[in-house]
Computed example of a mutant assay.
Amino acid sequence: MTKRLLASIHDVGPRFEREVDQLADQLSRILGGPKFAMLVVADHWSEAPLAEAKAFQAKLRGWSDAGVEMFVHGWFHKDMAEHGGAASFKARHMTAGEGEFLGLSEAVAAKRMADGKALLEDIIGRPAAGFIAPAWLYGEGARAALAKSGFALAEDHFRVWQPSTGEILAKGPVITWASRSKGRQLSSRFFAGLARHALHPQKVMRIAVHPGDTTVPALIDSIEATYSAFAARRPAGRYADLLPG
């Protein structure tokens, strides 16, 4: 397999239009064009309904027409479920109330996936590239719904897979940054720095950015250095290239 770099911008929607524009410009410059994916949220925290944002819809169509892969990234991006056991730990420590699909039943997860897919595909005029749960967190209900959803691709922190078959298409950690505390900023910058030197043997390298990253200049610098280091040694590709055939 040819080594690939898969770049993505999370939490895309009208709530973070300015931040998404900034990140899209940065990645386009480093990667030599719009060679990245966007993860689109239908109504971020019930405060920014994409269905009513006609100007942002036009932007999404333009990006999609230019070759940007468009993934469904949940509906609300907000976790409103009660959790116990391992899910409770994930909800507290792996995200700040953003793991929407961690505690949903199969029926509710299936409806949100289907509604998000229909909305995004109506906007861009082509199939969605896949589904990626907010914060990369999936509960049992979400995984069951995803297998029947018709999405071609899905990913979590450590893998990309084909939901209909369960076939794993790529393995390895995703490099990302956390902006919500000084400690998380430092630890994510430290990991990115290590990854720039240690992870080049990885076949598929995934690097993801979020709107909140734009609020911390040190994170933007780390993002610049990390994408540049990997892009110098492998081409930026498409998630769809991982699919069989």
Rank of each mutant, 00 (worst) to 15 (best):
S64F: 06
W75N: 10
G97R: 04
M94Y: 12
A86K: 08
F76T: 15
L102D: 02
G67C: 04
M70E: 04
G103F: 01
R92E: 10
H73E: 10
F71R: 00
F76R: 15
G97A: 08
A86Q: 10
V68I: 10
F89E: 09
W75P: 07
G85T: 03
H93Y: 14
K78Q: 15
V72Q: 00
H83Q: 00
G84N: 07
E100Q: 07
A110P: 09
V108W: 05
A91L: 03
D65E: 14
V72C: 04
G99M: 05
F76W: 14
S105C: 11
G74A: 08
A96H: 14
F101M: 12
E106G: 09
G99P: 11
H93G: 02
E98D: 12
M70D: 04
V68R: 06
M80F: 13
G103C: 03
K78V: 14
D79A: 07
S88F: 11
A96N: 15
K90V: 15
A66I: 09
V108T: 15
L104P: 10
A107G: 11
A86W: 10
A110D: 10
H83R: 00
F89T: 10
S64I: 02
V108G: 01
A87K: 13
A110R: 12
D79S: 12
L102S: 06
V108N: 07
F101Q: 03
W75D: 13
S64A: 15
T95S: 15
E98G: 01
F101S: 01
R92W: 03
S88L: 15
H93D: 03
A66H: 05
E106C: 11
M80C: 13
M70A: 15
A107Y: 03
L104R: 04
S64P: 10
G99F: 01
E98V: 02
G85P: 09
K90T: 11
E100F: 02
M94T: 05
S105T: 15
E106A: 13
H77Q: 04
H83G: 03
L102V: 08
H77S: 01
H83V: 00
M80Y: 12
G67V: 06
H77K: 04
A86S: 11
G85Q: 06
K90H: 07
A81I: 01
S64C: 13
M94P: 00
M70R: 07
E82C: 09
M94H: 10
E98W: 00
D79M: 05
G74N: 07
S88W: 10
F71T: 01
V68Q: 05
W75L: 11
D79Y: 05
E106L: 03
F76G: 09
W75I: 01
E100D: 11
D79E: 11
D79P: 12
K78C: 13
E82H: 09
G84R: 11
A110W: 01
K78D: 15
R92D: 09
G103P: 04
G97V: 08
M70W: 01
F71M: 02
F89C: 07
K78I: 12
A96I: 08
D79C: 05
W75M: 12
E100A: 05
G74D: 05
V108A: 12
A107K: 13
F71I: 00
A66R: 14
E100N: 06
